[in-house]
Design a protein around this nucleic acid. Structure first.
Lengths: 223, 223
DNA sequence: ATCCTGTTCAAACAACCGTTTAAGTCAAGT
DNA sequence: ACTTGACTTAAACGGTTGTTTGAACAGGAT
């Protein structure tokens, strides 16, 4: 089976963008590695920018579609009753987890691609992420509010922000996890990491303490 | 008072690197904006890479130095007794907070600089961050273990990883906070955000639940 | 006055960038 | 057989890149 020039270019672009970012990736790098002619990029995509936009769009859209699907499905099963925080964050994290999973663990190339796209200062890259967040605010935010009805909205917003920070930070830093914590078990198990991340996030969201940090010096005994 | 050519270059480099990253920042951009001659970069720093390394080194080193100082100080006050988790994370987060604070709130330029440096694939940039983590593992990690003596080391490591993810994610995503949550109060208050982040992290670290997510559908009632 | 050292300057260097061009290929449609 | 349209190709385009060069400048020491 032969792969089309277009797909060959897109595949290589994913790799190189994840490794070096937009500016440092040259079209000659892409076309040489893909084994296609330099001009075919401008022929099929119009420009370098359009190529990278198309590459990112193809990767991000399915994830967000799956997220909405999982949320709808959970709501259907609950009969419209408020969901558990675990179910909500499962719908957010599991499609992302699937997208970054290969047959043998994490897809480091794709993780780097996401990291780069989050930092890249470019109109499309920002609107692409912005688009997910409007979806999130409209669909997931009300569900979180229904599941934590007694929480102050301002406090809730901060905690949701930190939850997202933990999620995105975990992705961005993932390539360093092996170097930082070489003895960590289950490093390659995506579902295991997501389970642990959900536990961490839910604990932060349901924390009973509000306001300033007491910041006494001595430790209280904790289990 | 006149500012030296070297310092003028470094200041502009910080700005432009934060805005566009390493590759997309040209030396002509830097020297034009700084009002100095193009060749002065290679004269004072040797190369473009060396310039960016020096720029980052000058910014990161004081933060890590201050972190160790705060930890030592807290241990002196506690007489060597185990510290509260809040005190430990205060030592980690407060120097970072100071570094990204100007007279009127967050220093977005510097936040972007850190974000870029975390994703940039470059030998020095990686060893610079690596350096902090060896320091962290040798000094902060044992203190965390002393403060949570009953916790399984593997579980602890995962939670520390997520804590760092939340911290770095909060920095990287900070530029988007206004667009995502326009009605969020206290957005510009650095200390306030750090207080909230410490609460979030400590809740995640002290979470009593371990293992797989139960993931039932209906919400339990939470305060 | 002369030399020395550190710095600045305009100009040029070769290499590389994204994009365009025009000719060439090849299979399907008539 | 001929035409059409989609695609590929090598070569060139003008512009920009980081770096180097050698002359010019300034100020203190000899």
């Amino acid at each position: 089976m032969t792969v089309s020039t277009k797909d060959r270019i897109l595949a290589v672009t994913e790799d190189l963008f994840g490794q070096h970012g937009f500016s440092a990736t040259t079209l000659r790098d892409v076309t040489d590695r893909a084994g296609v002619n330099l001009a075919s990029v401008n022929y099929h995509f119009g420009s370098k920018e359009a190529l990278f936009m198309e590459m990112l769009r193809r990767r991000i859209e399915p994830i967000n579609r799956k997220r909405i699907e999982l949320l709808d499905e959970a709501l259907r099963r609950s009969g419209g009753a408020p969901l558990s925080l675990e179910a909500i964050w499962d719908a957010i994290l599991r499609p992302l987890g699937e997208a970054v999973t290969t047959t043998d663990g994490f897809d480091e190339k794709f993780l780097r691609l996401i990291s780069q796209s989050l930092v890249e200062r470019n109109e499309f890259f920002e609107t692409a992420h912005q688009q997910f967040f409007t979806e999130f605010k409209e669909r997931f935010s009300p569900e979180l509010a229904r599941s934590l009805p007694k929480m102050d909205p301002q406090e809730m917003t901060w905690r949701v922000y930190f939850s997202f920070s933990a999620m995105l930070g975990a992705i961005i830093q993932h390539q360093k996890i092996g170097r930082w914590f070489p003895f960590l078990e289950n490093r390659g198990n995506v579902d295991n990491m997501i389970d642990r991340l959900i536990n961490f996030i839910v604990a932060g969201l349901t924390n009973s303490r509000v306001g300033e940090v007491p910041n006494r010096e001595e430790a209280e005994v904790r289990s």
